[in-house]
Design a protein around this nucleic acid. Sequence first.
DNA 1: TCTTGTGGTTGACGTGGATCAACGGTCTGT
DNA 2: ACAGACCGTTGATCCACGTCAACCACAAGA
Lengths: 248, 248
Amino acid sequence: MHMKATVPITAADLKSACSQCNLLELCLPFGMTETEVNRLDELVGTRRKIKRQQHLYRAGDPFEAIYAIRIGWFKTDVVLEDGREQVTGFQMTGEMLGLDGISTEAHSCNAIALEDSEVCVIAYDKLEELSRQIEGLQHQFHKVMSREIVRDHGVMMLLGSMRAEERLAAFLINLSQRFTARGFAASEFHLRMTRDEIGSYLGLKLETVSRAFSRFQEEGLISVQQKHVRLLDIPALRKIIQHPSVMR
Amino acid sequence: MHMKATVPITAADLKSACSQCNLLELCLPFGMTETEVNRLDELVGTRRKIKRQQHLYRAGDPFEAIYAIRIGWFKTDVVLEDGREQVTGFQMTGEMLGLDGISTEAHSCNAIALEDSEVCVIAYDKLEELSRQIEGLQHQFHKVMSREIVRDHGVMMLLGSMRAEERLAAFLINLSQRFTARGFAASEFHLRMTRDEIGSYLGLKLETVSRAFSRFQEEGLISVQQKHVRLLDIPALRKIIQHPSVMR
DNA sequence: TCTTGTGGTTGACGTGGATCAACGGTCTGT
DNA sequence: ACAGACCGTTGATCCACGTCAACCACAAGA
């Protein structure tokens, strides 16, 4: 009954999508009653599988739906006319994609799968309709958008005011927290993105990212082997963030 | 009948706040019918005057309302424990403040008036209630939040991938567009913020901002005199943004 | 098994913007 | 109208990170 990438799954597969999903606490249904969650199921009409390196949507695509990641990892990026790319975020299970599209009715960035992934497709007009009826859904949706704004401000702080090693430390701590929230190991994980993509996100070149990784390893803060990372001294990493090693 | 800073105006002053306001097209009521806008007036319970350098809210303050700027300018910033400040935005007439507070029910940044200003206070619970009843309000509110997310991504691009002069050019072009949208002169305006604040926003030191201004002036792209700026060659400024002067 | 390509590491060197410092101009409040 | 603090400009120097380049590790496919 399962099928190829990006092809919708049949209705049968979807019965009670949200109500059966173990992501409840991270995703849209958070804070809603059981009966409300059951109504939410009408919302999630289809799922989509996206293969590694494929686009979920592209900048300029008409906006119709937002997406909740069920399985996998994505990056979002914006590209300047001259080809410069800026990764604006890495999204994992339970996180939302596509909110950028609401403002102009077209997506303003690209969303690309970092590994084979699966998303819930949430038709936007239906979401608005349903959130006029379900207070909890409305509120949770607003929270999700607001959280994205707060996250973005954190990235600005990172890009505008932090040094290379502080940025990388902040990045690793952030990943660790998000894994923890999902019940995964806090201090050992596989990166799904390349050094180049990390660099783009952090406003650094890949060589600088690589050197920062090596430095952290020399100092015993982490161990790295390609994409496999183990955080050995999380308190020390936290200290790096709030503690300008040099100057102000 | 007028009073001191931050003291609410009496109900009498407010009659038909939104419906009388000439900011309609930029603010929340955009796209709503006349009768709907009249209902919006219940929403804007009070206005608040904020004197230059005063806080509209601080990081950590409980979140109760969002604010629409009627008159004036604000900056928002986040501050690290060690004192480093990152300006996350400059907001002008018709723009919304406080959206960051929804996610955690507390504000996550500071909002500070750059000049004597006045805002409409929009109680957030009422806004949610009313936007469950008025489709156009709901949609416009979502657009405003989404627009903020898109803007933030633009700032990330700026901070992560652009050089000092590109950043400043982008900043000036952006201001120019926002003035234009409000019916002000596109190419001549007063900056409400200091070089230091511009630098914080752009991830640069004030000296670098000052030098970039001087360079633009030498090249005949602008004329600057303290806070007074005139854009003499907007196409050239645009070119700087998309045109890495050196390398990729 | 070998081959090819992509991704990661490390070193040597260059540079854009930060830092430090001095000074001049201009608002702000009294 | 004045004093003082704040703000902006400019020059000299420094350094964190970018650039260029060589090489290595690993994964995927033949």
